[in-house]
Design a protein around this nucleic acid. Sequence first.
DNA 1: ATTGTTTCCGTAACCGTTTCAAGGATTTCC
DNA 2: GGAAATCCTTGAAACGGTTACGGAAACAAT
Lengths: 358, 358
Amino acid sequence: MARKASRPEDGARQSTIREVAEHAGVSVATVSRILSGNYPASPATRSRVMRAVKELDYVANVHARALAGSKHKSIAIIVNSVISPHYAHVAQGVQTMAAEAGRLCQIGTTGGDAERELDMVRFMREQHPEAVILVGNVNADDEYRSRMSRYAHALEAIGSRLVLCGRPPLGPDVPAVVVECDYTGGAFAATSHLLSAGHRRILFLGQRPGYTTAEARIAGYRKALAAHGVPNDPDLEVDGTFERHEGYRMTRERLDAGTPDFTAVFACNDQIAAGARQALLERGLGVPDDVSMVGFDDLPPAMDIDLTTIYQPHEELGRTAVRLALEHAENGGPPPRTVLGTHLVIRGSVRPLLPAQR
Amino acid sequence: MARKASRPEDGARQSTIREVAEHAGVSVATVSRILSGNYPASPATRSRVMRAVKELDYVANVHARALAGSKHKSIAIIVNSVISPHYAHVAQGVQTMAAEAGRLCQIGTTGGDAERELDMVRFMREQHPEAVILVGNVNADDEYRSRMSRYAHALEAIGSRLVLCGRPPLGPDVPAVVVECDYTGGAFAATSHLLSAGHRRILFLGQRPGYTTAEARIAGYRKALAAHGVPNDPDLEVDGTFERHEGYRMTRERLDAGTPDFTAVFACNDQIAAGARQALLERGLGVPDDVSMVGFDDLPPAMDIDLTTIYQPHEELGRTAVRLALEHAENGGPPPRTVLGTHLVIRGSVRPLLPAQR
DNA sequence: ATTGTTTCCGTAACCGTTTCAAGGATTTCC
DNA sequence: GGAAATCCTTGAAACGGTTACGGAAACAAT
């Protein structure tokens, strides 16, 4: 109904603000103002416009709106993978908060590849979102830093902000909101827990030189060892990605190499722990009877395998990222920065080691 | 560099196509054509334009492009939750395929609420994506059907299409691409597997009247019972959502009610199975020693708890949804429809029942 | 040399909003 | 009663692209 006859088309079209204006007998400017924000308007006009909107089932075109107002209510999030539980939870937090704030949530994945992350940021920039949230694990080399720095400034130029979520700042020259999580503290607590139970040789699963989230954990691990006066044996730090099958592989290879030279395991996340556990069980080693274990994340697999682990506030990381970005967009000033904490969740995968066994 | 002096601002701006044109000494039309599609242009002009683009670090404004070309390269996906493994995998498939096709991926969650799903569709419509993909489990009442039908037509009107992924068509009057998955067949295979192992009293966990994904499964369950000549006992069909804690609750309540009157469990997904298993273990019932179990999904928890289950092609569902939508946008014609299969994955959670135990 | 084809490129009219300067209608004040 | 202030409302210029249409140049054919 009430389609402009002057523009005949085969398919129906979305009604425009002009049609609404015409229908209500006012100008487009009036419709625009009434619809966006509560601008002074006489009650009569307002209700006429509202009725026209209803009758035509009018929905504003966001692209026209974004173009004219140079602002698109949307938040972009870039993660390694949607499947990985940690990222999924962070994404859920972002999504929830974005929805609450009436923002569209745009998502992109990188597979953990720094190059693809950069391309994704570039791609997202075209969309002019209010914020681009970068989550997680990436190997930041110099080339990466310089490109990301360029992009950060480009984003700034279009009034969008970069948010680093669960990772440290990229440097003073890279404008970004930062929402960190205390991975070093978490790893310290995990390792201390094992040390307090008498363990001395603790396998570290998930070392990844260059990757901030792994490096933060190993720093905590080493710090705990030092605090307990236990010498650090680099041979106990095993390289691998944060996936289940990698946890399995790392442990398997270790066991294949000879008799176990460790009594406990600290896994960089629960997935790794689950894989490691499987490898141990296949070799007839029980958890915690033969080997104690602490994971990281406190996500689904942890409960199923009764894993003592470190909780990190996944969803809150996402929510905070959105909140701070939006606040910063509102208030301006230097980009805010915050650090969220972690804590130990005790289940049944750690057993005290008798003095004789040490 | 080369900023228009006539428009002085505090912050830097993104360069426009006009600036690129000026910089390259050609018209904006030429730049536009060279950038989008391979329009005939002399190599000299092309390279001049390309160089200008590089030098100005020009990125087209998608909103302007969408407005002028009335097309935005984007795909919207609406799921219950990003956290739920099944949805996460489907979303991963969508995201992957969308990225391959150079599309932006927009995501929204509903928490399994039909009302919120409708609102989300409405919201997504404002963004003019090429497709809106609806995944999963929702209670479709008449009110829902009628609103969704309206939205489907509204989407059609703006050249966008609705995609139903992992759920049946809504009716002949609702234009939509449909990518189903054979849940009935999967449930039939699962139940048959248990029946063949001699089980007769099989608990069905996850009944949800009105929810298509649950109803498809129970249809398969009943069909298998009938095929084996086993009478259907409605009392064995337990209501609950598809979450781990619900699996725990349903089983717990069952066990609390008296001595177990079943020898096997079919869980509507692996999460439910994991929760059920925990409840059984807490009561001293082993899987599969005391109770056999088959799940659905073949996702992470399945491997950890050595669960025999039904595989469904999660990511492929997502990929297919995007592919069909894009193909349909290209070719037109009636909306395509397809059904993907499932298959049994045998692990160690089912044990044959001795004839004496039946 | 004229005409017809091709090929490449430019002009300008949109796309659907927002927003600003300015206009008309009331009310308020002296 | 007229000027000033106030309140709503409007026309029109952006915003940054795409694209229909047409012109100019280059080349081939007559």
